[in-house]
């Protein structure tokens, strides 16, 4: 009985920090009415030195177009393993993409930056369309993109 309780306490102690180290975060991206086809978007994170850490989401499922997400492609070589399980459909002009992710707490207030590269068929590529520091204070503050993204906000 004693050993059972000890095991239970140990597993609880090991599990609780894990649960506390991540939080659900909603990333909302609204596109302009740019008058083209659906946009491919790559959402990824860089560390304080600017080095690629990993991807958060890929909007657009065909890897043959990923080279147009130029910064993301330069960092990853277009490796599909970077975005397995976090890939969805491309986003139409004027539409809003709302992504909910369980993100590590360590990403916030630690110098990490969230980037979005965008590309649209027969239109100009737009690398680093959004670059926003991941901070607790910045949550809920909309950021405007350069070409295709009307606003981006995380909270």
């Amino acid at each position: 009985m004693k050993s059972l309780l000890a095991t239970l306490a140990l597993t609880t102690a090991l599990t609780l920090p894990g649960l506390a180290m991540a939080r659900p975060v909603t990333l909302t991206t609204t596109l302009n009415n740019y008058g083209g086809d659906g946009a491919y978007l790559a959402l990824y994170v860089t560390d304080p030195s600017g080095a690629y850490v990993g991807s958060l989401w890929m909007a657009g499922g065909k890897s043959k177009y990923y080279e147009h997400l130029t910064d993301w492609y330069a960092a990853t070589g277009g490796d599909p393993a970077q975005i397995n399980g976090i890939t969805g459909a491309s986003v139409g002009a004027g539409r809003t993409l709302e992504i909910t992710l369980d993100l590590a707490d360590a990403l916030f207030d630690a110098g990490y930056t969230l980037h979005i590269d965008a590309a649209v068929e027969d239109m100009r590529d737009s690398p680093n369309e959004i670059a926003v520091p991941l901070t607790s204070a910045g949550a809920g503050s909309p950021v405007q993109g350069r070409r295709y993204i009307a606003s981006f906000v995380y909270k």
């Binding site: 991540a22 850490v53 909007a59 970077q82 397995n84 976090i86 709302e98 992504i99 369980d102």
Partner: peptide, 20 residues
């Protein structure tokens, strides 16, 4: 499939997206 093990994701709910 599960998201990549890149250290960005917790072990909570799987990624989900909706387009409006």
């Amino acid at each position: 499939v599960a998201p990549p093990a890149n250290g960005l994701f917790g072990s909570g709910a799987p990624p989900a997206a909706v387009t409006k």
